[in-house]
């Protein structure tokens, strides 16, 4: 909780306490802890003098502002047509097998959440995935697993 208060303080310092600061605040919280829980939303609502329902309404609209717990690293594999044709299914299967999760789930050690995403804007270099903000184009199954291992070795 404490660090969420600090994030709110930092971001409102830059963007002010009006409602237009809401997206930057929510984005900053998600960047730090990967999702927004009820207490976070209430704290943000208080800081901006908005109703908690308004804040939840905004957060729940956006795919990247998760309101359910996510792992430390959020993997988003592009599933839209060009990546589909380039073989995104093989990538998803490889990741599912490696992490022992299905798409939409979080690994037992809470290190990874695997999600599929709509067009990520790398249609000429598919299949592609995002891990947090980092992009990995031109994947094949082996390459995807190698990349995951690097994240796995981190604390």
């Amino acid at each position: 909780m404490a660090d969420v208060q600090q994030i709110i303080k930092d971001v409102t310092g830059i963007y002010g306490k009006e409602r237009k600061a809401l997206m930057p605040i929510l984005q900053a919280v998600v960047k730090t802890k990967n999702y927004l829980d009820d207490q976070d939303l209430i704290a943000v609502a208080k800081a901006l003098d908005l109703s908690a329902a308004e804040v939840f309404g905004t957060a729940s609209f956006y795919t990247f502002l998760d309101t359910v717990p996510r792992g430390k690293n959020v993997i988003r594999v592009c599933k839209t047509i060009s990546c589909h044709m380039a073989g995104k299914d093989a990538i998803i299967h490889a990741i599912e097998d490696t992490l022992k999760v299905k798409t939409g789930e979080t690994s037992v050690d809470k290190k990874f959440t695997l999600l599929s995403a709509n067009c990520l804007g790398w249609c000429h270099k598919g299949p592609v995935m995002l891990i947090n903000d980092q992009v990995y184009p031109e994947l094949n199954a082996e390459k995807a697993i190698e990349i995951l291992q690097k994240y796995q070795e981190e604390d």
Binding site: R19, L22, Q27, L48, F61, F64, A117
Partner: peptide
């Protein structure tokens, strides 16, 4: 920044998003 919503490319939806809605 956006947060993963295709519709925010629609100009008035983009304004709403920038306004925290």
């Amino acid at each position: 920044s956006g947060s993963g919503a295709y519709i925010c490319g629609e100009e008035s939806a983009l304004f709403e998003s920038m306004e925290g809605k």
